[in-house]
């Protein structure tokens, strides 16, 4: 897993090194972010520094980059809910702590809403990086659950095409490693919101189910 850019761009302690990196690979990302932005024109569009503050980790056009997930096409209500969770330190896994707590600490509520609407409006590209051999099994679990093992059907909440609804996230086309890590972390006791059903869902899944689901979902467009 390529985490190098993140180890450098992360914690606020590394401010100086962060600025250094911005001059190097960071600039390339920023330029790409501006050029690659295909979302409808907002007054502050891809050229806005608020968007750059996010895309320089989340990748060109918010399509995801290594451990920073794709934001393009995500539900705006979900993006806002997670920004709140990062700010309130409810979403508490190591990467969230290291990268996102700082990234949203000074974000005004109106900016959070604007950024959420902006990323939601960008068409999402699927990561296509799971194991194709496991996708069929993953699809069955996604649609039907495993009733005899108390695994809930994901379809009931995330929709027939994993597109999400309201503050329930789109899962289709997210990166395999990100999906797998999220599902594992709920099982390990990390949180991402208050009173959400996902910790129970994730505890019911074994490693084989997690791999099958993450594989299937990475291909959904």
């Amino acid at each position: 897993m390529t985490v190098t850019p993140f180890q450098i761009c992360g914690g606020r302690k590394h401010g100086a090194r962060q600025r250094g990196i911005m001059k190097g690979i960071g600039w390339k990302l920023v330029v790409l972010a501006i050029a690659g932005s295909i979302a409808p024109a907002l007054a502050w569009d891809g050229g806005d520094s608020r968007v750059r503050n996010c895309t320089w980790c989340h990748g060109t056009g918010g399509q995801g980059y290594t451990v920073a997930p794709r934001l393009a096409g995500q539900r705006s209500q979900y993006i806002e809910s997670q920004i709140r969770s990062f700010r309130e330190h409810t979403r508490d896994n190591p990467f969230s702590k290291q990268y996102m707590w700082g990234a949203v600490a000074a974000l005004a509520p109106q900016d959070a809403r604007d950024l959420a609407a902006y990323f939601a409006s960008i068409p999402a590209k699927p990561a296509d990086d799971g194991d194709r051999g496991l996708a069929a099994r993953g699809r069955t679990i996604y649609l039907e659950g495993i009733p005899e093992a108390n695994v809930a059907s994901c379809y009931a909440c995330h929709g027939p095409n994993a597109e999400g609804v309201r503050d329930i996230p789109r899962l289709g086309g997210l990166a395999y490693v990100y999906l797998k890590t999220r599902l594992e972390q709920w099982g390990q006791g990390y949180h991402s919101g208050v009173g959400t059903p996902m910790p129970i869902v994730a505890r019911s899944l074994g490693p084989a189910e997690v791999e099958a689901l993450a594989s299937y979902l990475s291909f959904v467009r």
């Binding site: 809930a152 009931a156 909440c157 027939p160 009173g195």
Partner: peptide
């Protein structure tokens, strides 16, 4: 108990109902 926890994943953690893609 395991079955009830499963029901409540979808029907709300206190059985109050939940709005997923389908209303539960």
């Amino acid at each position: 108990e395991a079955k009830l926890e499963y029901c409540k994943t979808c029907h709300g953690l206190s059985g109050q109902g939940y709005r997923g893609y389908f209303p539960m």
